[in-house]
Amino acid sequence: MTITCDALVAGYGEQKVLKGLSLALSPGAINVLIGPNGCGKSTLLRTAAGLLKPVSGEVQLDNKPIGQWPRRKLARQISFLPQAPVVPENMTVAQLVEQGRFAHRGLLGGMRGEDRDAVDWALEQTGLTAFRARSVAGLSGGERQRVWIAAALAQQTQIVLLDEPTTYLDIGHQLEVLELLQDLSRNRALTVLISLHEISHALMFGDRIFLMENGHLRFEGSPAALAETDLLQTVFAVEGSFRRLDRGVLAFLGERSRGRDAPGVTLAAE
């Protein structure tokens, strides 16, 4: 099961953010969206999840227009974690993660054995078993983010869309989340589409890279293929180079912004 986007034009009101973008996810792989802020990554994720109707073009899930899928059936196939989800008041960690089972049990359906197993598994995978009775509102930003990821995992879909899920995490938990997604992709054939701010993480964990700029797709392919171009330097307006690290992992070292006297931000470090 996979998602394809064909000539997508989408946005908000009169503002067109996606401008004829087409792509197809690699099934059972980590597909990573990168690009400057405002390039359309979040809009693409919302459109691919069926939450934003395109102005023109089409999103298909298994060769069927996504708009033709019943909402509950679609929620059994695709889970989506937005960039800044609202934290519910007076809800425990376990209760929030249980929300991921809604598509499987319905509005009035009670928790069954399989639902409890899915919640327990998601909590264990995200290191939150000991937090299950804690209030979500009392957690740190990083802990809350892990709870939302657990809710997405509890949904047990074959496709998971995540909009910069590592933003509020420290470096150790960032790597834990990405390693978890990589493990699920490889061992459970999970198809992941994830937007990442850290270029080094995109190169390290991405099986397929989608580089966006101003609502267009500038590149799609493997990290190694991207390293044969100068597109990162062009799109991010930096001077830099690729380095091959241990185990064949690539890193991009952004040395300085182009056209400025002051050094630019480092996009990755050895």
Rank of each mutant, 00 (worst) to 15 (best):
L8E: 06
R256A: 04
A150F: 07
G142W: 06
R46N: 06
P263Y: 03
E176R: 12
A29P: 07
D115S: 10
N31W: 00
D163N: 09
T2E: 06
F219N: 01
Q95C: 04
A150H: 01
Q182P: 01
P36V: 14
A269F: 09
G20L: 14
R260L: 08
D207I: 07
K19R: 15
I78H: 00
Q182V: 09
C5G: 12
F219G: 00
G215V: 09
G67F: 05
I194D: 00
D207N: 14
L169D: 02
L45W: 04
W148E: 11
L45N: 06
D117T: 05
A151H: 02
A94K: 10
E198P: 01
I34R: 03
P82L: 09
L107I: 08
T166N: 10
L193P: 06
L193M: 15
G67I: 02
R144A: 05
V32D: 02
S22T: 13
D183F: 13
G28Y: 04
R186Q: 15
V55L: 09
R186M: 09
S140W: 09
G240A: 03
S200R: 12
R101S: 07
T126I: 08
L161E: 02
T2P: 02
R72D: 11
M1R: 05
V192W: 00
E114A: 15
D62Y: 12
L108C: 10
E198H: 15
T266Q: 14
T229F: 00
V249T: 14
E228A: 14
E220C: 14
F102A: 13
D120T: 10
L169V: 09
S200F: 15
Q77H: 05
L25H: 08
T234G: 01
A225M: 11
V147I: 15
P82F: 07
R258T: 08
P85L: 10
C39S: 15
D170C: 07
I149K: 07
F80M: 05
L190W: 04
R146N: 13
V249F: 08
A29M: 08
G172Q: 11
H216G: 08
S79T: 12
S26P: 05
I194T: 13
M204P: 01
E98C: 04
L123E: 01
L108D: 01
N187H: 03
L231D: 01
G142T: 03
E220H: 13
D62W: 02
T4K: 14
V249M: 09
G172D: 14
S22W: 11
L184K: 13
A189D: 15
R146H: 03
I34W: 10
D170H: 13
G264P: 02
S140E: 10
V119N: 03
Y12A: 12
I199L: 14
G215P: 06
V9W: 09
E14W: 07
F205N: 02
I3S: 00
D261C: 07
W69E: 04
V59W: 06
L21K: 03
L181E: 03
E98K: 12
